[in-house]
Write a protein that binds this DNA or RNA. Structure first.
Length: 547
RNA sequence: GCCACCGUAGCUCAAUCCGGCAGAGCAUCGCAUUCGUAAUGCGGAGGUUAGGGGUUCAACUCCCCUCGGUGGCUCCA
């Protein structure tokens, strides 16, 4: 969505070593002026062909070592360069015919980037900018960026008092405030109910386990860089969990399993801790402690496809309930570092693909992006601004059943190894919450809203009547609050509107006399006067339809 | 982790460039007002300027370290 390009002709002067925020703005301002001049001059870009050797000589004489490095790797005998005035750049092209063709542009930011995208290389400064064929299109894009800023979950999280991250607690560790926790509870209740209906059994497991367990599972070999250092308890080492699977396996193994029990579906809202490098942490979207809506399905090989189909249906239903009906699906295949037999990978990948084809779902292959223990299907949702977010993942695993030696007794009284399917629909509650905040711009649908309805009194003498309504609605399980502050009604409406409370009840003399309330929506629409019974029925209907 | 920048009252931000009494709006608290659909008025309180060290007669301001955040890079639920 965002247009990013390296404009070679603004890179003509190197960035100063140190840039203050204010001088950074000034710096971009200066660059902008220079660019405008160049555009106005309508200087042509001239394409030239050089032999590779001449090009190396030419760029070496300019001291452009990076271009020389690129040239040394090019095998073609001739290369193309583009000239604009006294500036010559190595580029395959094509270029615009002249600088005058640039109609609308904006420089956005300055940031470091590793030379050729490799963190072992030196870091260079990169200027980000965007250009469009017309001023209108540029404005549209800048408006979009403005809207993205307004919806930023970190900003809304503070404004709506949903969550916080605190210095004293630690980086990437989330505090859910009452209002955020109310939303989480609504999500969790929905999730638990639906999992029960879909034939899952709910588990709870500990936050840590002996280090030896993680050796057995292979995590210490393949996942070490994401795990925290172990802690010692009475001479034994324990590790805080980065994944839930070993615990679920342990429950599977707690007694002998029959083929009749399969598929066995274990689900848990399991909190895991993973080491993430400080620079990658980002609000709720990238944290160090998070709760996965995890599940592990133990099944026979011939049940994989059917189970994957069920999971796909289930996932799309859950996502749809949260207002996501647009998504992109990816099938990730065997990575370089992997465990298990090639034959098993082929079979599992085939099963995943067949399920996608049966459902008639469009998907792309993501080569080599599978997890070390098996191939996976990832579903990335598109939010109301069309941005892509990775949430759901369905992974086949034939490594852990092998390593942890899990079996079931077949109809022939022999032991067989089950296949394990890992899946998370929302991914992590933290990330999903962050995505939801941005998707709804903080204006949650009624069933998710932290406060669903606010009772606003006109003056002190209405407080008692309002309190009666408050208690009645609380009894009905509605998240309601009352604003009986000594303030004008306009101010109370403003407060509730800014908190994006879906409904407000205005309570004054008229309502008290008629034994009614008057409802107003957060967008300003008036729903009208109704009795308490009618209100309760109306609100319950909204909840059951998840609006 | 790497590069650059930032951290001032609960929140949003001045004062930092060029060292010289740390300031405003909102929120909070008190008083007045009892009001009909997006801000009633007046007053009070609120700070070891993220933490630590250094330079200086003097540090929010300059230097170093630590912690945290932002934009990217690399990696990912």
């Amino acid at each position: 969505m965002q247009t990013v390009s390296i404009m070679t002709w603004i890179a003509r002067t190197a960035l100063p070593r140190k840039i203050w925020l204010r001088s950074k703005k000034r710096y971009l301002e200066k660059k902008k002026k220079k660019m405008k001049e160049i555009i106005k001059a309508k200087r042509p870009f001239v394409r030239k062909e050089l032999s590779r050797n001449d090009a190396i000589k030419f760029f070496s004489s300019l001291g452009e070592t990076y271009k020389v490095e690129l040239l040394n790797e090019i095998t073609d005998e001739t290369v193309t360069v583009y000239e604009e005035g006294d500036f010559t750049d190595l580029c395959r092209g094509p270029h615009l015919e002249s600088t005058g063709k640039v109609k609308a542009f904006k420089l956005l930011s300055v940031a470091g980037a590793y030379w050729r995208g490799d963190e072992k290389n030196k870091m260079l400064q990169r200027i980000y900018g965007t250009a469009f064929p017309s001023k209108e299109e540029l404005k549209k894009h800048l408006d979009f960026l403005e809207e993205v800023k307004k919806r930023d979950h970190r900003r809304l999280g503070k404004e709506l008092d949903l969550f916080s991250l605190n210095d004293d607690i630690g980086a990437g560790l989330v505090l859910w405030h009452p209002r955020g926790a109310a939303i989480r509870r609504a999500i969790e209740n929905f999730w638990l109910d639906e999992h029960h209906k879909a034939g899952y059994q709910i588990l709870y497991t500990p936050h840590m386990a002996k280090l030896d367990l993680w050796k057995k599972t292979g995590h210490l070999d393949f996942y070490k860089e994401n795990m925290y250092s172990p802690m010692e308890i009475e001479g034994l080492e324990y590790e805080i969990k980065p994944m839930n699977c070993p615990f679920h396996v342990s429950i599977f193994k707690s007694h002998l399993r029959s083929y009749r029990e399969l598929p066995l579906r274990f689900a848990e809202l399991g909190t895991v801790y993973r080491y993430e490098r400080s620079g990658v942490l980002h609000g709720l979207l990238r944290v160090r402690g998070f709760t996965q809506d995890d599940a592990h399905i133990f099944c026979r090989e011939d049940q994989i496809e059917d189970e994957v189909l069920r999971v796909l249906d289930f996932t799309l239903f859950i996502l749809k309930t949260f207002g996501f009906s647009d998504y992109d699906i990816y099938l990730s295949t065997r990575p370089e570092k992997y465990v298990g037999a090639e034959d098993a990978w082929t079979k599992a990948t085939g099963a995943l693909e067949k399920a996608l084809i049966d459902k008639g779902l469009k998907y792309e292959i993501d080569p080599g992006e599978g997890v070390f223990y098996g191939p996976k299907i990832d579903i990335k949702v598109r939010d109301s601004l069309g941005r892509q977010w990775q949430c759901s993942t369905i992974q086949v695993d034939f490594n852990i059943p092998e390593r942890l030696d899990i079996n079931y007794r077949g109809s022939d009284s022999k032991d067989y190894r089950p296949i394990m399917i890992h899946r998370a629909l929302m991914g992590s509650l933290e990330r999903f919450f962050g995505v939801l905040i941005e998707h709804y711009a903080g204006a949650f649908p009624f069933w998710l809203s932290p406060v669903q309805i606010s009772l606003l009194t006109i003056s002190e003498r209405h407080a008692e009547y309002a309190r009666g309504i408050l208690n009645a609605l609380i009894k009905e399980g509605i998240r309601v609050d009352m604003d009986d502050d000594n303030e004008k009604i306009g101010y109370k409406i403003r407060k509730a509107t800014m908190l994006k409370t879906p409904f407000m009840c205005i309570i004054g003399d008229k309502e008290m006399e008629n034994n009614t309330i008057n409802i107003r929506k957060r967008n300003g629409d008036n729903v009208g006067e109704m009795t308490i019974d009618a209100l309760t029925a109306f609100l319950k209907n909204e909840i059951s339809n998840r609006r």
